[in-house]
Design a protein around this nucleic acid. Structure first.
Lengths: 219, 219
DNA sequence: TAAATAATTTAGATATAACTAAAAAAATAT
DNA sequence: ATATTTTTTTAGTTATATCTAAATTATTTA
């Protein structure tokens, strides 16, 4: 089995590969994990020795098949625990991330499969992210982030890229919730901010917020 | 907050104080935690510096009020998670100990209080141990272990002192379950073994087994 | 293309929580 | 009361995962 630190790196590298393409840089990992680049280098060597990543000095890393499987197991656990916390314990979607970060490291295959069954095999977590099944498979969940949309296009808000409580509380404050229909009204060329509209209100969001809102059925 | 290692020591010292009286010895802690006496000494110094235990060289330790509170929190978490695993996820009573040992270290007061509510504030865990409430209070649970009973006396089997899967699987094999009425038929003076009887069968148990079965309403 | 800048790695240090082996203190036996 | 045994502590070591500072490699700019 892998240590907590190793599991966290696997998960982080998996997510960064998906977002920025493979061959993830040392600095990118360091910034996402709030550590220093030198610490990341140390860990990459260790993961490489265990055949979890392909690592070449100064060239970044990507997960091996073994590493991908390990990452998917951690992500499965994280998302199932988040689902449990919201569905069964009545937590809000902005309260579960940090607790799930701890629960995801509990070691027991049976536990997570029983939890999955208890929750009736959910396909998506409270933030709209697909939950890998026991074989690591997820449903297709093709979404477009607002920052990739054109003026006049619209879609249904179905997921976030950042599920930190800070970001989710910002969305709560702005009255944006999963399921809302969102339309791009205008894009400000000067600062890249987006004017968007829901059924109930209009607002302006920065590019970095637009980067983190995932929409479905965009037309 | 306390580290996992610190929490484990608090829990162990609490349990040993209850079983063998206060001022727990270094060696006793070492044997219960599968560590070496020298490691225990190191940790006792650390706990002492944090005011969690009263420690005098060569004289053993006991918990301070702060330490007792910490221990009760860990025990509360352990027992609530065990209850969750059995009641909600359909684990058997002999399968939950090791998983709960991990879950008990998840840090979140809200989580454990919500879990408590979800389980409808259980008073006893699957092994018959009382669950401390949010204030550290437990119900009175006066029991007698078989090794303290006289020939001819009987009672209801309501708890175990050892909740390791090994011991519980032994009980399963011998068809002994919580709720059974058990009567002491004879005590063998030679080896201290007990001849006991339930409604359905008779059997012989060693003194060390008799030491771990807790009975209620013993007459 | 050489210089400047940025990214990455190496070297050496720190904290935690374990360990072994040896020394010291306490308990037991003669 | 002294010797022996047992228990406990000290001293020094190890592994994990982090850090800072310095060195090295890669990238960008002039």
């Amino acid at each position: 089995m892998y240590s907590q630190a190793e599991e966290n790196y696997l998960k982080t590298i998996y997510n960064l590969e998906n977002r920025y393409g493979s061959d993830v840089s040392t600095n990118l990992i360091a910034s996402k994990t709030n550590t220093k680049a030198s610490s990341v280098t140390d860990m990459l060597k260790k993961l490489s020795a265990k055949n979890l990543v392909q690592y070449r000095k100064y060239q970044g890393v990507h997960l091996t098949e073994l590493g991908r499987k390990g990452a998917l197991k951690v992500i499965r656990k994280h998302r199932l625990w988040e689902s449990f916390l919201v569905q069964k314990l009545n937590f809000k979607w902005d309260e579960v991330h940090d607790i799930a970060e701890q629960l995801e490291h509990v070691k027991s295959e049976v536990l997570i499969d029983k939890l999955d069954a208890f929750l009736k095999f959910p396909k998506l977590d409270p933030h709209g992210d697909p939950i890998p099944d026991a074989h690591g498979r997820t449903i297709l969940n093709k979404t477009v982030v607002i920052s990739e949309m054109k003026i006049g296009s619209a879609g249904v808000f179905v997921g976030v890229r950042d599920s930190s409580s800070e970001f989710l509380q910002y969305l709560n404050k702005k009255n944006l919730a999963l399921g809302d229909r969102i339309k791009v009204i205008d894009i400000e060329p000067f600062d890249g901010s987006y004017h968007i509209e829901t059924r109930t209100h209009r607002l302006v969001i920065t590019n970095s917020v637009a980067d983190n809102l995932c929409l479905k059925n965009v037309k």
